[in-house]
Amino acid sequence: MSDRKAIFITGGGSGIGQAIAEYFGGRGWFIGLGDIDTAGMRETESRVGPGSCYSHQFDVRDRAAWDTALEGFSMAAGGRIDVLANNAGIPLGGSLSENTLEEIGRCIDINLKGVFYGAQAVLPYLKKTAPGSCLLNTASAAGIYGSGGASVYSATKAGVRSLTESLDAEWAEFGINVRSLCPGFIDTPLIDKTPNQSTNEAIRDRVKAAGLEITPPLAVAQAEWDAVHGERLHTLVNSTARQLAFGTRWMPGRVRKRARGMARPLGV
């Protein structure tokens, strides 16, 4: 087994995934990228540097494809996987009545099922590099308290948080760390998309109109590093997530009132 630590990152072709790859690669880790976007992965490879990256095009909704991707990465990494960054995800906003069956199914399949599949597929590899190996799931501030106008997205991210807690208990006997990251709005290409098929207004415009914070991906990558090397189960990224977590615990009535007052749909 190689002495060089290795991390496999889904959604590694852009945004948070790309930032994680650069951050860990800059600290000597061997990087694995999984994405449906081959051009994006090539861009990430150029940022990480030659000889430090392995890419595999696949869809996280395909359970069998997970096995192929991780086996290939493990071989390229000298027989080891130390961290899986279960990061691939898509936004979905708008009221539930506006969301199509296709949109609902796609969001659940990528954001939630894909995370379950990744956790199941990577377990044998993380056992080999334990103790200290890590499953790192990208959740969201929307998983702390449901966001008005983003019911499906919020539910998937709440599910990711719950899965993290469950596996933290299940995998403790193996010496595997299980962590989640809960960011607010991050400055990635995702927030330049429309929240659903029925609107032409980008998520970024709605976030700015609401006066909410947009955090650079580098801050998330730094938080990912700290999460992998720390003890915290859920890591909150940026003031939006921290304020929401504080309010949910100590001022739930105020959080509920604010959620009801959000007349325009927003996802986090």
Rank of each mutant, 00 (worst) to 15 (best):
R47K: 14
V115I: 14
G32K: 02
R264C: 06
S133Y: 08
I176S: 06
F8V: 07
R80N: 02
D37M: 12
L135R: 00
L70F: 01
H234T: 06
T138F: 05
D62C: 05
S97Q: 12
F58S: 06
L92R: 06
R42V: 03
G12C: 12
G184K: 09
R27I: 10
S140A: 01
E213F: 06
M41G: 02
E71I: 09
E165T: 07
D192H: 15
G247R: 09
P50L: 06
L212H: 13
V152L: 07
E71A: 14
I36R: 02
N238K: 11
K157V: 04
P50S: 06
V268S: 03
R61I: 13
V48W: 01
E213S: 01
T194R: 10
P265Q: 07
G12D: 07
A69C: 10
I104T: 11
V178H: 13
T100R: 08
R206N: 11
F24C: 04
C107Y: 06
A245C: 11
N196R: 10
A139S: 15
P189F: 10
T10L: 05
G230R: 14
L181A: 11
G49S: 03
A169V: 15
P195Y: 04
L163K: 04
V178Q: 10
S151C: 05
G51W: 09
E231M: 04
V207S: 03
N238C: 14
M1R: 13
I16Q: 00
V237N: 14
I7D: 06
W29P: 09
A210R: 14
T240E: 10
V268W: 04
L218R: 15
D192Y: 12
D82Q: 08
A85I: 15
P91E: 08
S154M: 03
R80Q: 05
R61Y: 03
G253P: 01
L244M: 14
S74E: 12
F73E: 05
D82R: 12
V255P: 14
E231T: 15
L96V: 15
G11Q: 13
N86R: 10
P131N: 12
D192K: 13
R242L: 09
D226W: 14
G146L: 01
S2M: 07
E71S: 15
R264M: 10
S239E: 11
L136M: 13
E98Q: 08
A263P: 02
V178W: 11
A210Y: 13
A19D: 01
P183H: 06
D37P: 09
R63L: 08
R61M: 11
L167S: 06
I90K: 05
F174N: 05
E173F: 06
T10A: 05
Y145I: 07
A77H: 00
I20L: 10
Y117H: 04
A65H: 00
F73C: 08
G159I: 05
I203Y: 04
D3C: 06
E103W: 01
I108P: 00
D205S: 15
Y125E: 14
M262I: 08
H229D: 07
L236K: 00
R260A: 11
R206A: 08
Q120N: 04
V48Q: 00
L163H: 07
G25V: 12
G12S: 11
A21W: 09
S239D: 14
D168K: 13
T10W: 05
A119Q: 06
L123Q: 13
I203K: 08
